[in-house]
Amino acid sequence: MKIENISDLRVLLATARQGSLSAAARELEITPAAASAMLKRLEQQLGARLFVRSTRALRLTSEGELLLNYARRALELLEEGITQVGVGTTHLSGHIRVAAPSDLSRHWLMPWFDQFMEMHPQVSIALTVSDKLQDLHRDALDLAIRYGELADSGLVARLLAETQRIACASPAYFARHGYPADPDDLQRHECISLHIAGQRDTLWWFSRTTSGAKPEIREVRIQPRRSVDDGALAHDWALGGKGITYKSALDIHNDLQHGRLLPALPDWQGKPYPLHALYPANRFLPARVRALTDFLAQQFAGLG
């Protein structure tokens, strides 16, 4: 069994992406009849049905899903090889699909992406900004940048930065409400919680070490008056004096330096919150994606 025409695989990918043969044909700039014939030829060569037609669209069969993953990786590898032959190994080109948190994107990643694209004019970047956890396979992402501990063993992770979360608010908030005396005192304050992995994050972790003593660990269940699934909006609420939020030190780095936000508990450490670059474990990693990750790691290291 073999596939005789690589263009048939391109029809498979376009049809899965678009949901219909006519839309796939428009994307590939061929006729719908040609697209249908190429898909039928592929199914005949494989001896398997790849799509089931519903009333509105085509849906992949289990065999189609399996082949789709391999076809995508094979075409990515082919594209990378053609690119390197065409422009030489010192030049990068192609498209990079990235997902990243909102606050981190706004304060750090967007200008760094601009720098990277100036260095590599033939590279384009599509950025998906969300604090929700994207599925790299389902959403066809090349790279995801995520905070926190890792649970998905199907991904390859590279540490970009060691950071922590900090309970913080604006000077105006503390002028009105005072500072919490210790972590437990947060329960009487106006708190702003984030939604992490689809749930409100209301359990805030703190650690303190006194001279020669064992670290004291405290977990506090806050009662947030405001909660949001976008870290940038929680950040804005804190800057506007609306309450205390529990943010990554990277996200509030500049505001802490310029006094726009202040730590609520300066004698306590917040929860470790490492930042990773993640790739699908079973997918070829193009040179442009590896180069972007190297560049981001250098930029984050420079913040220290």
Score class of each variant (00 low, 15 high):
residue 236 D to H: 13
residue 182 D to G: 03
residue 89 T to N: 00
residue 110 M to G: 03
residue 225 R to P: 07
residue 162 E to W: 04
residue 114 D to V: 09
residue 152 D to F: 01
residue 140 A to Q: 13
residue 220 V to Y: 06
residue 90 T to W: 01
residue 245 T to C: 15
residue 290 R to S: 10
residue 182 D to S: 06
residue 198 G to N: 06
residue 197 A to I: 11
residue 194 L to P: 11
residue 15 T to G: 06
residue 98 V to K: 00
residue 271 K to R: 14
residue 26 R to A: 05
residue 142 D to A: 02
residue 87 V to P: 02
residue 259 G to H: 08
residue 257 Q to T: 05
residue 224 P to I: 02
residue 294 D to A: 05
residue 252 I to W: 05
residue 33 A to I: 03
residue 88 G to Q: 01
residue 202 T to H: 04
residue 20 S to V: 09
residue 267 D to R: 11
residue 264 A to R: 09
residue 114 D to M: 09
residue 83 T to I: 00
residue 257 Q to W: 02
residue 246 Y to G: 05
residue 218 R to Y: 15
residue 270 G to M: 03
residue 174 F to L: 08
residue 59 R to K: 10
residue 173 Y to A: 12
residue 134 Q to T: 02
residue 203 L to R: 14
residue 193 S to E: 08
residue 67 L to Y: 01
residue 203 L to V: 13
residue 31 T to W: 08
residue 108 W to V: 03
residue 170 S to V: 02
residue 228 V to E: 13
residue 99 A to F: 05
residue 187 Q to K: 01
residue 53 R to W: 06
residue 52 V to Q: 15
residue 225 R to W: 14
residue 237 W to R: 14
residue 211 S to Q: 13
residue 95 H to Q: 02
residue 218 R to V: 15
residue 219 E to K: 03
residue 223 Q to F: 11
residue 156 V to T: 07
residue 213 A to S: 12
residue 100 A to L: 14
residue 17 R to L: 04
residue 123 V to G: 11
residue 115 Q to Y: 09
residue 51 F to W: 14
residue 129 V to Y: 10
residue 211 S to M: 10
residue 173 Y to C: 12
residue 13 L to H: 08
residue 267 D to V: 08
residue 105 S to F: 15
residue 26 R to T: 03
residue 270 G to D: 03
residue 179 Y to I: 02
residue 260 R to G: 02
residue 101 P to W: 15
residue 128 T to M: 13
residue 161 A to C: 03
residue 248 S to F: 07
residue 44 Q to T: 13
residue 264 A to C: 08
residue 105 S to P: 10
residue 283 R to Y: 02
residue 248 S to W: 05
residue 97 R to I: 01
residue 8 D to F: 01
residue 101 P to D: 15
residue 293 T to W: 01
residue 237 W to C: 09
residue 35 A to H: 03
residue 144 A to E: 14
residue 172 A to D: 14
residue 30 I to L: 11
residue 110 M to E: 10
residue 212 G to S: 12
residue 170 S to C: 02
residue 171 P to G: 00
residue 111 P to Q: 00
residue 139 D to R: 12
residue 220 V to F: 06
residue 70 Y to Q: 08
residue 10 R to Q: 07
residue 41 R to Q: 14
residue 251 D to T: 11
residue 279 Y to W: 03
residue 102 S to E: 06
residue 65 E to V: 00
